[in-house]
Each structure stands twice: as structure tokens, then as C-alpha cells.
Amino acid sequence: MLKPLIRRLIEMTVVMALVVTIVFVIVRIAPGDPAAMMLGPDATPQDVADLRVRLGLDQSLAVQYLRYVGGLLSGDLGQSIFLGQPVGAALLARAEPTFFLTLFSLLIACTIALPVGILSAYWRGSLFDQATTTLAMFAASVPSFWLGLVLMQVFAVKLGWFDPSGYGGPGAGLGTRLHHLVLPAVALGIVSSALIARFTRASMLDVLGDDFVRTARAKGMSEWQVVLGHAFKNALIPILTVIGLTAALLVSGAIVTETVFGLPGVGSLIVSAVLRRDYPVIQGALLVIAGLYVIINFVIDMLYLAVDPRVRY
């Protein structure tokens, strides 16, 4: 157990080092200039050049990179050019809506997808199976921002049950803040549920015909004990994988949904940072997201070990 753990940790470090370098280079190569964005449309080229010097952007890429990596090694993600606060603090301030949005979306996705996937596999070829397959295809092909706008029109504008956008004003309690997450979480959850449902169905179909299922039935177990206690448990590994990847995708994939719903999460922070070329924030946010991906994958790998004793790394 210890040896694969160490090997995976080394691999994770290499991946993160690559991410740091690639993101740094891509962000700098892309056209656009934070100084020009900061100064506004009527600034002269000389003003822009002066600000670039003040921000240290006139230095060579190598110098900027070494300074950035040096900061990272001491736990400093840098200072946002536009927000006037450390990148770490900016990300932390945006973590709550993104965390809850991801959590709720995932809960909604799993609540829909797991029963639907299990039942459509169990009743394979039935009307229920065909209907859920069609709905899953529809949900998978709908962009979450479009679904979000439709939900906004119906439940916020027409029915007035929610505010169309935002995360509550000053002093808003947790309840109010979470209330603002309902529509975006439903939009993301429905879209994400399609993938999980399809994987659950496929995975269940793989195991429902296996010998151990027949044996379980021959032993006189109830049908639901067979399906949930035996078949589902054995089908769980690929389902766990896709749930884990969906969670990671939701963290980064919420970008557009957060922007549409005006949620001050990590996703909208990235969008605004990209639009105004806030290099430190883009780098810091992508680094954190990449880190989350790596950690989630690591956790899934470790879960495999726990769920299936046959798995070896």
C-alpha cells in the first residue's frame, strides 16, 4: 500500500510542475496586456509602458518565471493585479459558492442518475429505458448555460421564486446564499446526470448477466438485494470514476454557469481574470484546479484499492 502511494505522490508532483510551467507560458504568450486593461481605453502607449514597469511585466519571461516559482515554493501564489489582494485570499473568498455549487450539482446529478441508470439497466429495452436514454441524450447535448437561462426565465423572472443572479448582498446569511445556488445547481446537475446515468446503465448491464448474480438469485435473495447488494456494488468502480471526474469537471465546468448566474465563484473569477489578463489570478486558479483534479484522481485510485482488493498499482 505504501509503495504505490509514494509512486503516485511523485507522479502528482511532476504533473503539478508541468502545469505550473505550461500555464505560465501560455498565459504570457496569449495576446493582451493587464496594464492596458487596467488603464482603460484612453490611456496612451507610454502610460501602458510605465505601468508595465511598475508591475514588473517588462522583465524577461525567465526572470518572471523564477520569481513566480520562488513565490510558489514559499506558499505564495502572487498578488492579483486588479483585486489588490493575494491570489490565495481571492481564491479562498470564491471557494464557498464554487464548493457548494459543485456539491449540490453532484448530489442532484447522482440522485437522478444512479436510480435511473440502475433501473434502465434492470428494465433494459423497456419503455422506461428508451425514455430515459432519450432524455439522457438530450441532457448531455444541452449546454448548461442555456438550461440555466431557461430556468432563470421560468423560476426567477416568471414565477419570482429566485433572484435571477447574484449571491446575496451584504450580510446575507447562509440560507440566502444557498438559495441563490438552487437554479445553477439544477442546471449543472441535470446536464451532469446524463453522463453518470449512461455509465451506471452500461456498468450495471456488464454485471447483471454475470455468474455471481445468477448465484445470488439461486440462493433465494430478494431481487433488490441482488441488484443493489451484489450487482451495483460490483458495477461501482467505473461509476465512482465517472462521478469523481464529473466532480472535477464541475469545479472547472461551472465557469460559464457561474458567469451567467453572476455567482462570485472560482469560475467567474477565472473568466474575469482572463478577460482582463490578471496573470497571477489565472495562474493561481488553474494551479488550484489542476491540483484538485490530481487529488481527486488520487483519491479515486485509493478508493479502487479499498473497493476492489484485486486492484494493484
Binding site: 437561462l149 443572479s165 447574484g166 451567467v260
Partner: peptide, 20 residues
């Protein structure tokens, strides 16, 4: 006075229609 950033134009329109 609270200035609320709503960068998406469609969302600003919906906010106006809903009276947010």
C-alpha cells in the same frame, strides 16, 4: 448604493425584467 457586477448582458436583461 450597492453596485453589483453582472457581466453577462442577458443576465442583466433578466434582472431588469424581474425587477431584481
Amino acid at each position: 448604493i450597492r453596485f453589483v457586477p453582472v457581466p453577462d448582458a442577458s443576465t442583466r436583461v433578466e434582472g431588469a425584467v424581474a425587477g431584481q
